[in-house]
Every structure is written in C-alpha cells, then in structure tokens.
Amino acid sequence: MIDTFTNTVLFVMLVLTALAIVRMERLFAVVMLSSVFSLLSALLFVTLDAVDVAFTEAAVGAGISTVLMLGTIALTKPEAKRPRHTAFVPLIVVCVTGAALVYGTLDMPAFGSPDAPAQTHVGPDYLSRTPIDIDVPNAVTAILGSYRGFDTLGETAVVFTAGIGVLLLLSGLRRRREDEDEEI
C-alpha cells in the first residue's frame, strides 16, 4: 500500500516536471527542471529496488548532463526559439509510440511475479552456477563481466567511440575559436 502511494506521488511529480519542461521558455530553468526530473526518476528506480540503475540515472542525468547542457547554453543562446510549425503531427507520433509501448507491456509478467521466466529458471541457474564457474561473491558482477562479457565489451567500445567523437568535435571548436581571437 505504501509502495503504491509512493509510486503515485513520484509519478505525479514526474509528469508535472515534464509538463513544466515543455512549457518553459528560459533554457536555464529547463536545465534545472531536467536535473530535478532525473532525480525524480532515480527515486522511482529506488522504490523499484533497482538501486544501481537509479544511481547511474542520478549521476548521468542530474550530474554530467546538467554540466554539459550548461556548457551548451554558454556556447549558444539562453532563450528557446519559437517553433514555426504546429505540434500536431509530433503529438500523434508520440501518442502512437506510447500506445504501442504500453501494448507491449501487456504480455509481460507482473513486477516481481514469481512465475516470470527470469525467476523460474534463468536467475536460479546463474545463482547456482556462479560460485562454481567463476568464484565471485557478487552474482551481478559475474554476469556482467563473464557470462555477458562480449556484451559488456561492445558497450565499452560504443562509449569509447562516443568519447573520441566528442573530443574530436571539441578540439575542432577550440581551434576555430582561437583563430577567431587572432583575427580580432
């Protein structure tokens, strides 16, 4: 009962924050609101017992991306441009996508249901094999680092590529700015 109450209040605050983000014109306030949005979704993850996901969400959403967006505002303008076309078609696309996602969840087992496939054979199998196969006390670490090692390697490669791309873009920007300064 308390879980339902907490989830409801958090979701109401999340939706209100999202609406405020859409309606706000000053981009600085939008950055602040999106940081709060990320903290609220982190709290929702905590109530769902996904503490590690919640921490990633808070560190990336409220920490790093706030700093990055403020840096972007420093390089561009602090006011939002008024859109020239109506929001009708995007609204329809968003509604259809949302309806498809909700329809997709209908077949899924309920949250924490003991009949879910993950609870019936996948989870117990990993839990029983981890001490013999890998001898690591933390089952999550064993799955991420060994059973799904190639998956983690791919993720690391993607993040590494993204980091190199951002570094290249930023170094080009800095060189151009220095050229501009010399012209002045």
């Binding site: 940081s35 808070a58 560190a59 409220a62 920490g63 706030t66 700093v67 403020l70 840096g71 420093a74």
Partner: peptide, 12 residues
C-alpha cells in the same frame, strides 16, 4: 552528486 552539480552551476 548534488554538491558537484551545484558547484558546476555556480561556476557557470
């Protein structure tokens, strides 16, 4: 995290 974010905003 909150502390670091606030410092970044104030530096901005």
């Amino acid at each position: 995290i909150n502390f670091v974010a606030t410092i970044a905003i104030l530096k901005f």
